[in-house]
Computed example of a mutant assay.
Amino acid sequence: MKTQSNLFRMACLTAILLASTSCEKSQKDHPVTFDQEEIIDDEFLTEKFQSQLTPDFVIDILKKRNKEFVDERLTIRNTSQRIRTASLGQYPGAVILSCLDSRVPVEDVFHSGIGDLFVARVAGNISNEDIIGSLEFACKVSGAKVVMVLGHEHCGAIKSAIDNVELGNITALLAKIKPAIAAVQNFKGEKTSKNPDYLEAVTQSNINETISNIRKNSPILKEMEEKGEIKIIGGEYHMETGNVEFIK
C-alpha cells in the first residue's frame, strides 16, 4: 500500500513538472505582449512632472484611474522599468490613508504601480501621531498634492467599534472610532452593526472624523491646505463595484 502511494505521488509530481515545462515553452514560443496604451502611465515618476501638478489635477487622475479599475482594465505594470526609474527618488502625486482590509488593494483600486502613491494602512483608517507624521512626510517632504482618507463598505473595524469589542490593543484602536459613532447619535433606525444603513452612516462619519483629526493635529498639513498646496479629501470604496466615492 505504501509503495502504491509513493508511486502515485511520483506520478503526480511528474505530471506537474511536465505541465510546467510545457507552459514555459509555450510562453517562450508565444510571449504575451501588450499595446503601449495598456500599460499604466508614468505620470508620477519624475520630480519635474510632480512639481507641475495641482491638487485638483491629481484628484482627476485618481478618478480616471479608479474608473479604469471599475471597467476591469487589468493593471499592467512595467515593473522592471519602474524599479529602475524610481530607485533614486520618489515623487508620488497622492498619499492614501486606507484601512488594513485585504479586500481593498489600494494600488489596484487606483490602477497604479511603483512610485505612484504613498499608502498608509491601519484598521479603520484612523489617525494617530505616527500616521499623521507619515502624511506630513508624504506632502511636506516628498511633494504629494493630495491626502485621501479611504474608508470602505463592510469594514470590520467599524463593526467592532459599534459592537464595543474589547481585545488587547484592538480596544485602544477602536476607541478612536467611537467619536464617529457619537457623531451620528441622531440616526433614525436600529443602531447595530447588522443594519447596513447605520454601518454606512458610521463609515462616512469616521472618514470625516479622520479628516478633521488630520487638520486639527497637523498644523503643517492644515497650512499647506489653506495655501492651496494640497487638498485633504475622503473617499469610500464600494466593494460590490470597485468604485471609489469621492468625498470633499
Rank of each mutant, 00 (worst) to 15 (best):
K2H: 12
T3E: 15
Q4V: 11
Q4N: 11
N6K: 09
N6I: 00
F8W: 14
R9S: 12
R9K: 13
A11F: 14
T14S: 15
T14Q: 14
A15H: 02
A15I: 01
L17S: 06
L17H: 02
L18R: 10
L18D: 11
A19Q: 13
S20N: 13
S20A: 15
S22C: 10
C23F: 08
E24S: 11
E24K: 10
S26N: 09
S26D: 09
S26W: 10
Q27I: 06
Q27R: 14
K28L: 05
K28R: 06
D29M: 08
H30Q: 05
P31M: 11
V32Y: 02
V32S: 05
T33I: 03
T33G: 01
F34E: 12
F34L: 15
F34N: 11
D35T: 12
Q36V: 08
E37L: 04
E38D: 10
I39A: 02
I39L: 07
I40V: 07
D41I: 00
D42S: 11
D42I: 06
E43V: 06
F44C: 03
F44N: 04
L45R: 08
T46S: 01
T46D: 00
E47A: 12
E47P: 08
F49S: 13
F49P: 04
Q50P: 07
Q50S: 10
S51N: 13
Q52Y: 05
L53P: 04
L53H: 04
L53R: 02
P55M: 08
D56R: 09
D56E: 13
F57P: 01
V58W: 05
V58N: 03
V58P: 05
I59D: 01
I59S: 01
I59K: 01
I61P: 01
I61G: 00
K63V: 12
K63S: 14
K63W: 14
R65N: 03
N66M: 15
E68N: 08
E68S: 06
E68Q: 07
F69M: 07
